[in-house]
Simulated assay, not measured.
Amino acid sequence: MYFFFVLIMFSSSLFAQQNYIDTFHQNISQKVGKYADDLDNFLSSSETQDEKPTQNHIKKSDTFFKNDKYMKETRDTFIALDLGYNMDSLESNHLFISLDAHIPLYKLNKKYNLFINNLTRNDTNSPPKSPYSDITQKEQTTEIGLNYFRDISKNFRSKYALGIRGLSLFTSAQYGFCKNFQLLDIDAVEIFQYNSRNIFSENSNLYLDTKVHGVSFFRTTLYRGTSSNASGMDYGLSVSKYILFNHSGIYLSQIFSSNTSIHGFITNYTTLASYKKSIWRKWFFYTLSPSLIFDKSHHYKTEYAMKFLLQSYFRSGS
């Protein structure tokens, strides 16, 4: 109750200082773009930036929800600050703060991107999971480093990364292939990772997007992955629906996941709903994400969870 009282008082204070907050956000957003441009100019020659293709509705939905697919592939300039609270009927409740930042350097001959992923402060040892994860993630550890993007062709793309994850150095290579049809978009992604602890992992994601009508689409995601420090192969399936409005969106998903080394065909069933809405201009959002979980680790006992999230989003040009 104290947490929600603080949130209510915080929101009231924000609306009472509308002009000050708007000015503050504008200044921060301008500085994000300015610092990115200054760093880009310092490291690059005076080449022109390639024009970005116009985003279709599916890409706009991924961008709005900031889901896993978007975070793995984006070249946008932004800083996202999250304040949230997780409630769970079978596990501990906790408050968390998380920061993500991407600073692309477009003017270099080869596209580079400085990134900070999931810089988290919370009252548990487990970082928060995204409410828009297509497949339940086992871990989300702070990552800081440099991405290098290379478009092989119109349909083939690649991304290479070097950085620090936790206390280990890591490198990764990501390859993607996309093909658009009249009613179906196919996107296949393969990721290879290796770190200084001599752990090698690889995983595959296949995204099948079916266009429904102007404001929504269905996404079926198939996942598999292995790691040298874990037995068996992880695999999963999710069926999701994205509905995007002018200043809000709804995300619905049914998720199944398991591992070949564990007895039992499915070890986790998750039904997730999420509602996200802009409540302050185009940069301050709240998200409500209730979920119903049946996990083998809890002997498939019904697990109720709820995530409440406030997000400030600073982006160049906003």
Rank of each mutant, 00 (worst) to 15 (best):
A36N: 11
G163F: 04
M87H: 10
G249E: 06
S257P: 05
T210P: 01
G176I: 05
Q30D: 13
A16G: 15
V6F: 04
E47Q: 13
A273W: 03
F15I: 07
N122K: 03
I97H: 13
D187R: 10
L83G: 04
S238K: 01
L162I: 11
N93P: 02
P53W: 08
N86R: 09
S228W: 08
S29E: 01
A188I: 09
E91A: 12
L7T: 04
K66F: 13
F284E: 00
H57P: 01
F314I: 01
S297D: 15
G214M: 05
N19A: 12
Y132P: 06
Q137I: 14
F4C: 01
T63Y: 15
H298R: 10
F285L: 02
S253G: 06
P131L: 12
S29D: 00
S46P: 07
D50I: 02
M71F: 14
D123V: 14
A173K: 09
D22Y: 14
F314D: 00
S201G: 14
R75Y: 10
K179I: 11
D209R: 14
A230V: 04
S248D: 11
K282R: 11
I199F: 03
N180D: 13
D40W: 06
T221I: 01
V6E: 05
G163T: 02
I28K: 00
G225C: 05
E139W: 12
G249K: 05
R165Q: 14
D38Q: 13
A80T: 03
S44A: 13
D151T: 09
N246E: 14
T221A: 01
Q174I: 08
H57E: 04
F314Q: 00
G163P: 03
F3G: 02
P131S: 11
Y132W: 13
S204F: 15
N268F: 06
F217L: 04
S312M: 11
T48E: 15
T124Y: 10
T124K: 10
Q17R: 11
S231M: 03
I262E: 08
Q49W: 11
F181I: 05
F314Y: 07
Q18H: 15
A36F: 04
D151H: 14
N41E: 06
A161D: 07
